[in-house]
Structure formats: structure tokens, C-alpha cells
Design a protein around this nucleic acid. Structure first.
Lengths: 173, 173, 173, 173
DNA sequence: TATGAATGAGTATTCATTCAT
DNA sequence: GATGAATGAATACTCATTCAT
């Protein structure tokens, strides 16, 4: 991938994440990426194509994030790692994750159950640990951590929040 | 308030909630409200003014939603009512609440403090109930219910979800 | 004429003179006149009608300004009075005269020879005073004084300019 | 400069001069220039920018017009040339000069100082020729010629007017 | 690959004007 | 006479996209 193409992707990710897909013009993206506006269309056909190119990385990044959890055999360790996950996201990737969260509100962009394997694994872990309602527990924890991610991405919290330690104590992991 | 003004507000609420502020044109709003486009500007000055008019109701509606909780004296009952809150939102108001959630992603419209009184009350209730870390517990439950709201508004769950009952059992209320 | 009608005329005169007919909206006029926008149309039918109502006064005011000159019998005194004319315009009427000058640039508003009787009188006076080319002299002086008016209305000069005295000396009147 | 950009400038000059800046819409300019309306904004940012681009030529054209006068050493010849100036303006440039005159009525565009060097030169010439009040004489002649320009641009006179010859005789040049 | 001129449909907003009260 | 709600066309300007180079 050429330099300029990457510049476009980076600029678009940043702007889409912080100002919103519809609020950002291709001209603005071109200016931020320091390329001509035409180049965006040569590389990505149209504005939506640019968004899709950004989103294509998503599955891979999600998989990469989930791998150490899905391959963990110790149920306690599964829960531990799950809790750590949002707090361990790298600030340099916040733009990317912020965009993921935001797009869930756009009807056109419906990413279904990317998290299903994670929830299943959590359910298995809770079952192993003797929870009475492992499925609901899994959903609950997933919800908690989704919201933690949202708070972090929106900068309502910072990554050193004491909330992580609290969750560890709460879940005894 | 005249009929037409209300039509505009209703159409705008609906469209902003479902398609997004930036994705909806004033011309589209006018068509949905069956009024001339000019009337929007006579009543609200500009597009942002229209959004602000919608948001003005928000504080009132939030206060109305929180009142029965804030005036509740029985800590157990506080937690009960808190858990019920998102599930009790009326579907006819989903558009309104959806818009509230969406706008939290717009920097200008994120007022995280609006829920402070609720969190304080929850903290008080958890303390009364003997929780070891009432502040963190309050934050936790607030997060859970915020996420429940999100799931409901996005129609990922429906209001009869078994999750409510699960939370009741979990919190023993 | 009612108060409100006069308010409209005064506001329109002021705004047309200082900002230009096309640059001023009926809504702005209504605000300045502190009346409803609809009233403008009840009284003057349309924006152009408002301008025409203002202009109707013009002929009368011009006639009033010219009368003492046209009825003067002493040729020297004619030239004297002519030279004084622009300097004697009342500042409170500057808006009115400014508008007259401005409208001469609008093709739609061509008021031709309103000044013909004045020029004829000047020609007569110059002839009496023994000028070799009384017609050209009349045109010349008319031009000079037209330009003096312009400078005064545009506030490039003030009414106490030494130029008046200079003209008196020059024309020996 | 591309063809289309020049078309826009030419159309705008023509329309602004004859109908007035505020009375002409960008859509009309685009139609006259036979380009898309958007192109105006790509080249000049906004309507005012278009006007400013036109006005930028002005200083150069004024300088060009004044040069032969300012470099003339013979005082008689200075006055001669000054008198000829407005009559020598090329009809194909009338639009340009008309616009200059018109804009002097717009507060934002009134630059009265542009003629200062000319007036100074005239004052010098009148002094050399033994005038008693050379400064006032200079102002007077400047006024006369400004008004001549106005009459010509407004087509109230034509360029072969006998007035030029009259002025030559009058000033003995 | 990359540019930047060019387009035409669309955007928010303003305008002169009408009309019911 | 006077208001202010309401309209629809127009306005300045932006947008995503195309195209010649």
C-alpha cells in the first residue's frame, strides 16, 4: 500500500471517529491527508468505500484482541483477561475503536455478532466457576465491559481508572 | 405552540434519532413534517436551533424519570427502581432516548454529569445495604443500566428481556 | 399618514441610503421600523412600491430646493445661491440625498432631466454676466456642484469645507 | 489562468457593473460565464472573493492611467492630459470603470486616497502656471473630471462631447 | 499513480410576499 | 390597521464524484 493511500486511511479514520462519517467531507479528508481529492476516489471509489476499507481492518483487529482470551484454558484467567481488555487498548488506537462504537448507531452499518465467540467463552468460564446463571453472567460482564470501552473512548474515564481493580475484586480474579 | 411547530419537532426528533443529525437535511425534515422548509427557520432560526429545542425537553424528561428514585427512602427499593428504569421506558419515547444516547458521541452534547444525582443516590443505597465499596458499586450499576438502555434503543434487546429479572436476583431486590 | 407608515418610510430611507436597495431585506426594514413585516406590504404592496413612495417625495424636495434659485432675478445672486445649495443641505436629510445619488446608478431607476430648469437658469445667468459660452459654463458648474454633493453625502468632505468660499471667489459672486 | 476562470471574471465584471453587486446572483454569473455555479467558489471561495479578484486589477489600471501624467514635466501639458483622461477611456473598459465608481458608494470599498498623487501633480502644475490657489484649483479640476467620468460611464454623455474642448479653452491648454 | 479543474445535485438559510386572524 | 404564521422560490455555498491530463 502506498504512502498516500495510507495517509488517506489515517486521516479518514481520525476524522470519522471524531467528527462522524456524515459530518466530514471528502475534501476535508483530502486536506488532512495532504492529497488531492481525486485520489480518494481512485483508491476507494467513493466515500462509503473509504469507510469500508477502514472497517475491513476491524475484524482482524477484533480477532487479534480476542485470541488470547479464546485460547485460554483457565476459566479464572479468562475472566481476568476479559476484564483487562478494554483497559489495555492502546490510546493510539482509540480513534479506531471509537469509530467502531459510533458506527453501531448507524442503521446502515450493522455489524452483527462479532462478539459472540467471546460471550460463549465467558459463559463457559462462568459455568466452570460454578455460576448459577452462566449465560446471563456472560451477558452482564460483556455489557459492563462494553460500557467501560465507551467511557474510555469518550474520554469520560482514563485507562488507569480504579474501576478495573474493583472488577477484579468483585469477580475474584 | 402551533400544530406545525410541533410537527417539525416530532419529525426532526424521529429523523435525528434514526438517521443522525448530520445525515438528515432540513428539506427532509420539512417534507416529513409536511411544512415548508422556510418555516423551520422562522421557528428555530437554524438547524442547530431545532436540535436545541428538542434537547431542551431532555432535562425535564430526565428529571421526571429520576424523581421517583431520588425521593425513595428504602435503599432496596432504590436499587429495584433503578434496575427497572430502562426497561420501563415507553417505546413511543424510544426516539427521544435514542437521540440522547447518540448525541453523547458529539463532543458538544456530552454532559456526563447529568446522572450525578442518580449515582449519588445509588451510592447511598449501596452503603445502607452494607456494600464494601458503595461508590464503585454505584458506578457499576449505572454502567450496566446505561448499556441496557443502549441495547434497548438500538433494538438489540426487547423490553421483556429476561435480563431484568436476572439483575433483580443478582442484586437481591 | 399613520405613525407606523412613517416609521417604515424612515427606516427604509435610512437603510436604502446606507446599505443599498438590494442589500436590505424587507425583514430588516420591518425590524428597524418596529413593525410587522406584513405591514410593509399592506401599505406599499411590495418592496419596489416602498422605494417608489420614498422617491415620490423627491420631486417635491428638489422643487423646494430649486425654487429660490429659479425665482431669483439677479444673475450674480443666481450663481451665488447655486453654489451654496449643496453646502446648505441639512445633515438630517443626507440619507435622502444620498439615496438620490445612489439610485442614479441603478438602470431601473433613471430619473432624467430633473435638473434641466436649473441648468437653463444658470445658462441665463452666465449669459447675463457676459460669459462667452454660457451653456457650457452652466454644465460645468452643474457638474462641479453635483460632485460636491456626492463628496458631502459620502462624508468625504464636511459642509464647512473651504471649497465653497473658493468657488465664490472663483465665480466672483 | 484558465479560460473558464477568465469567463467568470468577465461575466461578473459586466454584471456587477451594470446591475450591481447585490442585485446579481452567483447563479446568474455562472449562466453568463457558461460554467457551473460551483466553479465560481472553487476559484474565488465566495462571492466577495470574486469581487475582490476583479478589484485587484483596479490599482494596476489606475496606475497605468496616471503614469503619463505623473511623469509629465510641462505643467500645461499636465493639465491637458488630465482633461483628456476621462474622454480617452476605452469603451470596452467602461464596465470596469463603472464598477469602480459604483463601489465608491459601498462603505467597504471606498478608498478615497487612490487619487492623491494625481491631485498633488495637478496642484504643482497650477502653482507653476501661477494660479493663486493651486490646491483648490486642483481639487476643482479633479471634481470636474470625476463627474465627467461618471457622466460618460452612465452614458449620459458620449466621449465626443464638446465639453472636452470647452475645458481646454477654459484652462487655456 | 496523482492532480486539480469541472460538474450538478444538494445544503442550510434568506427572501419577498400572502393570508388568516 | 396590524400581526405573525406560512410559503415557495431564490440565494450563497458545499458536496461527492468525474474526467482530462
Amino acid at each position: 500500500m502506498t504512502d498516500k493511500k495510507e495517509n488517506i486511511l489515517a486521516a479518514a479514520l481520525d476524522l470519522f471517529a471524531n467528527e462522524g462519517y456524515h459530518a466530514v467531507s471528502t475534501s476535508k479528508i483530502a486536506k488532512h491527508a495532504k492529497v488531492s481529492e481525486g485520489l480518494i476516489f481512485r483508491h476507494f471509489n467513493n466515500k462509503k468505500g473509504l469507510l469500508e476499507a477502514i472497517m475491513k481492518d476491524a475484524e482482524q483487529k477484533v480477532a487479534q484482541m480476542l485470541a488470547p482470551i479464546l485460547f485460554e484454558d483457565d476459566p479464572k484467567e479468562v475472566i481476568r483477561k476479559v476484564i483487562q481488555t478494554p483497559f489495555n487498548l492502546l490510546p493510539k488506537n482509540y480513534g479506531f475503536w471509537k469509530l467502531q462504537y459510533k458506527l453501531k448507531w448507524e442503521t446502515e452499518y450493522n455489524h452483527p455478532h462479532k462478539m459472540k465467540p467471546l460471550i460463549d467463552k465467558m459463559q463457559w468460564a462462568f459455568a466452570k466457576l460454578g455460576a448459577e446463571e452462566p449465560e446471563q453472567e456472560a451477558i452482564l460482564l460483556h455489557n459492563i465491559l462494553d460500557m467501560v470501552g465507551i467511557r474510555l473512548m469518550r474520554r469520560e474515564w482514563d485507562k488507569d481508572s480504579s474501576f478495573q481493580a474493583f472488577l477484579m475484586r468483585k469477580y475474584k480474579v
